[in-house]
Every structure is written in C-alpha cells, then in structure tokens.
C-alpha cells in the first residue's frame, strides 16, 4: 500500500456545521447534527455506524442527491449548498459515481450498454470496454442484467460508476446483497479503481471489516461524527476477514 502522507493532501470535501432535519415539529428527525469533516483527495474513506446514524444522509448530500437543512458542504471550491438543481445534475454527471446495494442497472440494456449510457453523456469518460475490464467483466459484456449473477451485476454497476472517470466514487452498502467471496471481489475492484484512477472513494457500510482497506475511517452515531481514525497500515481486500 502506498503512503499518501508524503504529498500535501488536497481536499475533495469539506463540511461545516452540516445539518439535516427531516420533517417538522414533534415529528422532526435530526439525521445530521452539525457535521464538520474534511476528506482529502484520493483517499478511501469508510463510514461506519449503526442504522440511522446519518452516514447515508451525509453521502447523499455530498453526492448531490439531497440538500442540507443547514451548514455548508464544499466539493473542492464549489459550495454544494448553493448549487441549483441543474448544477447539481451537472456535478453528478461530470464528477460523481454511485454504487448502491441494489445494482439499479437498466434491465433493458446489456452490460456494455449500461456503461455506454454514462459514457455517452460524461465530460471525460473512458472507453466502455476499459471500464468493464477494470471490473473483470470482459466476456459477459453483451449479456442483459437478467442473465447475470448478483456479483456480476454489481461489477457492471461499478463499471458504470467509474466509466466517467469520476472525481469521487460513492458506495452505499456495495456488498450488502453479496456473498463473502463476491463481496471481497467487489471491494477489490473498488480498491483498484482508487489506486489506478486516483478517485476519492467513500464507502458506507455495516461491515466493520471493510474499514481495514480504508485510508480513513469515520464512525457515526446519532447524526454526528464520533471519531475519525487513519489507518497506518491498510489491508488488501483479499485479506479482510469477513
């Protein structure tokens, strides 16, 4: 594992007092209670915490899918809180890759076409073939989602997310629906992409073991950050005890 601390780190995300409240009055749910955070460029960051602790909410706000109720969130120099809907869409189109627990592939498009769906609109995409090679899915590119296993579908979803050469890759429970061997393979792919493309990766997960592959681990509880730890030695996904 390379050591990034030798280079001065640039910041991908910076938040100040980030707050998210769902609902009003007595029914109000405080998903985030003033989160201050800095995510350096090129790191793998794993967010851990129990359900409802706010980690997914943070991911959604940073990914431009949701808006904060209060506070500020910066992507590089741009304030996400001040962007129009259209600007957020363009932000997602050009910079953000998403991977969800449920793969959300277009059932009517083949693996290759699902990736092309992104490369057709992105600013600076890679070849769809290359993205599929990155996830080790060179041969089954002309299959439809219905003809693939869960692990294969998730790899297509990752290929689709990375094909645009994203600045950041968000993974929300990427291995949640997979068995351990497949899960490990998927994490491997994510690790490779971080290393080869230099994309900042943020992973939300329940699986605490995943933290071992991260540069930085953020623990969430009750809508706030409890602790941030930096891994001095990272473990390869292959060695993670599941």
């Amino acid at each position: 594992m390379s050591d990034r601390k030798t280079q001065p780190p640039r910041t991908t995300f910076r938040t100040r007092g980030l707050t998210k409240v769902y609902g009003e009055g007595a029914a109000a749910v405080h998903a985030l209670r003033g989160v201050d955070l800095e995510v350096p460029e090129g790191e793998i960051v794993v967010l851990l915490g129990p359900s409802g602790s706010g980690k997914s909410t943070l991911l959604n706000i940073l990914g431009g899918l949701d808006r904060a109720s209060d506070g500020e969130a910066f992507f590089q120099d741009q304030n996400l809180s001040e962007m129009s809907d259209r600007a957020l869409t363009m932000y997602r189109r050009d910079h953000v890759g998403f991977v969800f627990q449920f793969y959300n592939l277009m059932p009517s498009l083949t693996a290759f076409e699902n990736v092309e769906l992104v490369t057709e609109i992105a600013e600076n995409p890679m070849e769809a073939d290359r993205a599929l090679q990155l996830v080790g899915l060179g041969e089954r590119v002309n299959h439809f989602p219905a003809q693939m296993s869960g692990g294969e579908q998730q790899r297509v979803a990752i290929a689709r997310a990375v094909a645009k050469n994203p600045t950041v890759l968000f993974c929300d429970e990427p291995t949640g629906a997979l068995d351990s061997a497949t899960g490990r393979a998927v994490l491997h792919v994510i690790n490779d992409i971080n290393r080869e493309l230099g994309a900042t990766v943020m992973i939300v997960t329940h699986a605490a073991a995943t933290a071992q592959m991260a540069h930085r681990v953020i623990h969430f509880a009750d809508g706030a950050i409890r602790s941030v730890t930096e891994n001095d030695t990272r473990v390869s996904p292959d060695e993670i005890a599941w």
């Binding site: 869409t89 997602r92 959300n104």
Partner: peptide, 16 residues
C-alpha cells in the same frame, strides 16, 4: 421510476 431515479443519479437531466 427506479430506472429514472438511476438516470438522474448518474447525472441525466430531468428532460433526458
């Protein structure tokens, strides 16, 4: 609706 949401997340505009 799910496909549409995926498209939106990928950065497709509402019109697209």
């Amino acid at each position: 609706s799910r496909d549409l949401a995926s498209l939106r997340v990928m950065g497709f505009t509402q019109g697209e």
